[in-house]
Computed example of a mutant assay.
Amino acid sequence: MLTVGIVDDNPLDLDKLELIVGKVATVELQLKANNAEEVYAFIQETPVDLLITDIEMPGMSGYQLADFIHLNNMNTSVIFVTAKSGYAVHAFELNVHDYILKPYNQERLVQSIERFTDKKEAGKITGRLFIRSGGDLVIIPKDEIIFLERTGRTTTIHTTKDVFESYQSLGELEGDIRESMFIRSHRSFLINLQYVKRFTEYSKKSFEVVFEGTSQKALVTKEKLKYLQENYF
């Protein structure tokens, strides 16, 4: 069951959110609020999977709330539902799930929630990766892998607990992983999207990938980043 919180200072818009969310069978509404301060206090104690929020509200804004979630690496995704289009670029920087402009219809929001649910289910990484490292056969849980990097004849596997090196090619290991959240971001990198924190411009054709769990960075091409924006973020 997907846990959801909704917040909007306009009573009619808030009731509309509640009505639509209530029609999604896989959703449990845990929080309904008319101000971001109440949500801010609530999610620190009881995080929700998905927060649907207006942006411009008295006091703390929805953008400030999403920024708090992002900076604290909370496992809560955000959908902005707003009459203002000017925040769209900044919203991407916060890795929000969706940006919906008012007025919107029921189908638009339901599709967004269902897409988030599908992504969440697809993102459950299971199984283990077997690699040859030196004379050893090393077993690595796939959900601990942050990214893989090919340098010369060596592939380096960066995990949450250790770093391993193997002479197996990046293509060979990519075939062994076969998980939707692992993306070939660059000819030399295979990244796990679950650990991506942000993208920083590196050159005209590529961006650096900053991860949670390691100070090491990967690269993503401009074309692949556009694909990720359209299909994952």
Score class of each variant (00 low, 15 high):
Asn105Ala: 07
Thr26Val: 08
Asp13Ile: 03
Phe233Leu: 15
Phe92Cys: 09
Leu51Tyr: 00
Val7His: 05
Glu107Arg: 10
Asp176Gly: 04
Gly175Trp: 09
Leu170Gly: 00
Ser85Ala: 15
Pro58Phe: 02
Glu208Ser: 14
Leu31Cys: 05
Lys119Leu: 11
Leu170Thr: 01
Thr159Asp: 02
Thr214Ser: 03
Lys204Trp: 01
Lys142Arg: 13
Ser77Glu: 12
Thr155Gln: 03
Ser166Gly: 00
Asn192Arg: 08
Glu107Ser: 13
Gln30Glu: 15
Gln44Pro: 06
Tyr195Lys: 04
Met60Gln: 08
Lys32Glu: 02
Arg178Asp: 14
Thr155Phe: 06
Ser61Asp: 10
Ser215Ala: 13
Met1Ala: 14
Tyr87Lys: 02
Met74Gln: 13
Leu148Thr: 01
Ile131Met: 07
Thr156Arg: 11
Val220Phe: 03
Lys119Gly: 13
Leu71Ser: 11
Ile125Thr: 13
Ser203Val: 09
Glu18Phe: 00
Pro103Gly: 08
Lys102Cys: 05
Pro58Asn: 08
Tyr232Trp: 14
Glu179Thr: 11
Glu174Ile: 00
Phe42Trp: 10
Asp67Gly: 01
Leu190Trp: 07
Tyr227Lys: 06
Gln229Leu: 12
Gln44Glu: 14
Thr126Met: 08
Arg115Pro: 03
Asn35His: 09
Gly59Thr: 04
Leu65His: 01
Ile139Pro: 06
Asp98Pro: 04
Phe42Cys: 01
Thr160Leu: 08
Gly152Thr: 00
Asp162Pro: 05
Ala218Arg: 07
Ala88Val: 14
Leu29Tyr: 05
His90Thr: 13
Gly127Gln: 05
Leu14Gly: 03
Ser133Lys: 01
Lys142Cys: 11
Leu12Pro: 04
Asn10Arg: 03
Gln194Asn: 15
Ala218Phe: 06
Ile100Cys: 01
Leu65Thr: 04
Arg198Lys: 14
Glu56Phe: 06
Gly59Met: 09
Asp9Gly: 02
Asn10Gly: 07
Asn192Glu: 01
Ser188Lys: 01
Glu114Arg: 13
Ile183Asn: 02
Gln64Ala: 11
Phe68Ser: 02
Phe147Cys: 07
Gly171Lys: 13
Ala25Trp: 05
Gly127Tyr: 07
His90Leu: 12
Tyr227Ile: 09
Ile52Gly: 06
Ala66Arg: 04
Ser215Pro: 13
Ile146His: 00
Glu18Pro: 04
Gln44Leu: 11
Thr200Tyr: 07
Lys197Met: 11
Asp98Ile: 05
Asn105Met: 09
Ser206Gly: 02
Phe211Met: 07
Asn231His: 15
Ser180Asp: 13
Asp9Glu: 07
Glu165Lys: 13
Lys102Gly: 10
Lys120Asp: 09
Ala41Tyr: 09
Lys222His: 11
Ile20Asp: 02
Met181Lys: 12
Thr159Ile: 00
Gln64Met: 08
His70Trp: 06
Glu172Ser: 15
Ser215Phe: 08
Lys119Asn: 14
Ile79Tyr: 05
Leu29Arg: 05
Ala218Ser: 13
Leu14Met: 02
Thr156His: 06
Ala88Ser: 15
Thr214Trp: 08
Glu121Pro: 09
Thr46Leu: 12
Glu28Arg: 14
His158Asp: 05
